[in-house]
Simulated scan of single mutants.
Amino acid sequence: MISFTKQGKGNPLILLHGFCESKEMWQDISRELAQEHRVYCLDLPGFGDSQGKSLPQNLEEVAVILQEWMEEQSVYNPIIIGHSLGGYVALALAELMGSELRGIGLFHSSAFADDEAKQHTRNKTISFVKKHGVDKFIASFVPPLFAELHKSENQEAIDLLIEIGKKTPKETVLNYIKAMRDRKDRFEVWKTFQGPKLLIAGELDQAVKIDSSRAHQDFTTAYHELADVGHMGMFEAKEKCLEILKAFLEQRG
């Protein structure tokens, strides 16, 4: 069962959260965007309130679950924007649904598969979570997502994300680390997707390096780099991100 919020009227926009996050992370952004659009914020399967009997084993399964949810909710031709893991899911949906999506956006995310170094890091994280548990992992995982100069002003957001993350079941954490580690390269999907494409990158992002983001630029309808921002632009540069999102959505109707 997919837990979600729905606000506003107009063309549908789906916002997908990142790893160990939940739909609540979008509350400020969605409130603003709902003035002109019908905004859905989802908990991905296994996160937040989207708990079920079985967890998806890969991103393709996640995409199928979300496609079925769209059919159930009569959500047609949406724009889908995903943060980090949410961007990986958005690309899996683009591969699955193609022109049934009005547009896609990567928010601190990438169409590339993990390289060998990143896969090694994922494996170390799996070992850490198995040994020390979710709470200790989340406490060390969340703060570095923010650029150093933005941490103090975003302490409330950091605390919120730690609180959300600690509620994530251990099995969900481990399953999604493996799913991200083993995900296929979808750069060709990004290149060939016919609808409008948005990419928002942080120059100081340690999770999605800026060089990786820049490699997408030539195949992107609207490409934006956020100076002095890490992996959490919706908090670190909220007003700028809102400006970018509104402009992208207004141009697409």
Rank of each mutant, 00 (worst) to 15 (best):
K136S: 14
A113R: 04
A92G: 00
E68D: 15
E61V: 00
K130D: 09
P78F: 00
V62Q: 07
Y88P: 00
L85F: 03
G86V: 02
P143Y: 08
D114S: 09
E68A: 14
V75M: 03
L91T: 00
E100R: 15
A94F: 05
L96F: 00
Q119S: 11
M70R: 04
S84A: 11
N77H: 15
Q119M: 12
S152Q: 14
H120G: 12
T121L: 13
E95S: 09
R102Y: 09
P143L: 05
E68R: 14
L96I: 03
I126R: 00
E95M: 00
P144H: 12
E116C: 09
A139P: 07
K124I: 12
K151Q: 15
F141C: 10
E72M: 12
S127V: 15
T125M: 14
D114G: 04
R122P: 02
L145W: 03
E72G: 06
V64I: 10
G98S: 11
N123P: 06
N123Y: 12
H83M: 03
H83P: 07
N123E: 15
S152T: 13
R122N: 05
Y76N: 15
F107E: 09
D114C: 05
G133V: 10
K118Q: 13
L145R: 09
S110P: 03
G105R: 03
E116F: 09
F146A: 05
A90Y: 01
E148C: 12
H120Y: 12
V75I: 15
V142C: 08
I104Y: 03
K130N: 10
P143I: 10
S84T: 01
E72F: 13
G86A: 00
W69T: 09
V62M: 03
S84G: 10
G82K: 00
F112L: 11
M70A: 10
G105I: 02
G87Q: 01
F141T: 07
S140G: 14
V62S: 05
E116W: 08
I126Y: 02
L106K: 02
E61K: 07
K136Y: 11
L106Y: 00
I79Y: 00
V129D: 07
I104C: 02
I65P: 06
Y88W: 05
T121I: 15
F128R: 12
I65F: 00
Q67S: 14
L101K: 02
S109D: 01
S152D: 14
S152P: 04
E95R: 07
R102K: 14
L66G: 02
E61Y: 01
G98P: 06
I126H: 07
S74C: 11
F107A: 06
F128P: 06
V142N: 08
G87V: 02
I81M: 11
K130L: 14
Q73M: 15
L149V: 15
V62G: 04
D135R: 09
W69R: 10
L66M: 06
P143R: 03
G82E: 03
D114T: 04
M97R: 01
V64S: 11
F141M: 13
K131N: 12
V129M: 03
F137Y: 12
R102N: 10
V62C: 05
L66D: 02
